[in-house]
Design a binder for these strands. Structure first.
Lengths: 206, 206
DNA sequence: ACCTGAACACCGTTCAAGT
DNA sequence: ACCTGAACACCGTTCAAGT
């Protein structure tokens, strides 16, 4: 068969297959993706830059759920808040992909473009350049940590008979609690950002 | 040679070798650890429950740097703050281990014991059982995210010519910024916790 | 350009054999 | 109990061969 008249593979289907594997079993391998698409493992390498490239396709798919239009709203703090909520919802839809995406450098151009826009928002609001990344990474920690907590609240703890209090605290966790923690964390973050910005003029340079 | 009169291996040395590999190259494999100890790969399985067991040894080593005594101080919010600072310092010493430990369930008894103590502190301060885990995981997100940011500030971003603002924001990041973000994040967290607790009696049951 | 099929170095885990 | 040495199934990546 060799080269088919119409390609068997494309980046869309590769990303979708990898994300589905992640959703089902919490991980994926390149051969598994190939198998799911009825193709040889090596064939993927004609479309994607190895496993890291597949991860970036997954990131693009998950992040496609984020409404980037929120970043164009005014005022700046309302835009940031709406973006954070949309960001969290997108990741909460694929909780088992979060660990993979949290520990992998962001290369996907579509995602970088959205962060570029977020940087522009903060600079336009009057923040200084050194203030921007701490704000964005702080917001990201809040969003991703909380999305993981929302969808997999006890994934990180294996209590034992020696830790009865911890076991009780885990059992007492209600689904609304992660929600509440996010709300207050977000409010605290926004209050901090407003305070940090002080009386800067919107669009000002210094 | 088969069984030596005095064992060649012990859990201490396995954990130390794995942590050193993580510090040097950001990852480790079981065969690499065996090689570093001059031993066959299979030998490790007599001392440790597979790769996951080695990860838990690494966690114990890193967490050994946390001063658990802080949790016995009074008042409760001062204890929590001191614990968070010690926690962050311990992880900042091994930044390349953080991604591995952040995405892996906690099984190490010594670490679980410390969390058991933290749960006891919060319950003793008057928090209700459902409030405890959201507080602890929120604090953990703050601490680990900030430790990672402190030690590897640009590890998560690969800016391109299409993202000049992002590149500028990354370049403008000073080392003191992660510190400042942690300080304010911690202050916001503690203020939230005090507010959530309200006027509960220390040691009260609710 | 795109797929196959085979290869390569590596991984995590198991286990009989030896002392 | 503890180490060796070999095995197994699996992984990520490369590449000549075919169309």
């Amino acid at each position: 068969m060799a080269r088919p008249r119409t390609p068997l593979l494309d980046r869309e289907r590769i990303g979708a297959a990898a994300l589905q594997l992640l959703a089902e079993q919490g991980e994926f391998s390149v051969p598994q993706v190939a198998r799911a698409l009825g193709v040889q493992t090596g064939s993927l390498y004609h479309h994607v830059d190895g496993r890291a490239g597949v991860i970036e396709l997954v990131r693009e798919r998950v992040c496609a759920g984020i409404d980037g239009g929120t970043l164009a709203a005014e005022p700046w703090d309302g835009a940031l808040e709406a973006w954070a909520r949309s960001y969290r919802a997108a990741f909460a839809a694929y909780p088992r992909a979060i660990p993979l995406l949290m520990t992998t450098p962001v290369r996907a151009p579509a995602v970088l473009a959205q962060y570029e826009q977020a940087v522009a928002l903060l600079l336009g609001a009057g923040f200084r350049a050194e203030q921007v990344m701490p704000l964005l990474t702080g917001l990201e920690n809040l969003v991703l940590g909380s999305a993981l907590d929302l969808a997999a609240p006890d994934a990180m703890w294996e209590p034992t008979p020696q830790t009865p209090l911890l076991a009780g605290a885990l059992a007492a966790q209600g689904p609304g609690r992660a929600e509440a923690a996010f709300e207050v964390g977000l409010a605290a973050f926004l209050a901090y950002a407003r305070d940090l910005r002080g009386g800067a003029e919107p669009g000002g340079e210094g």
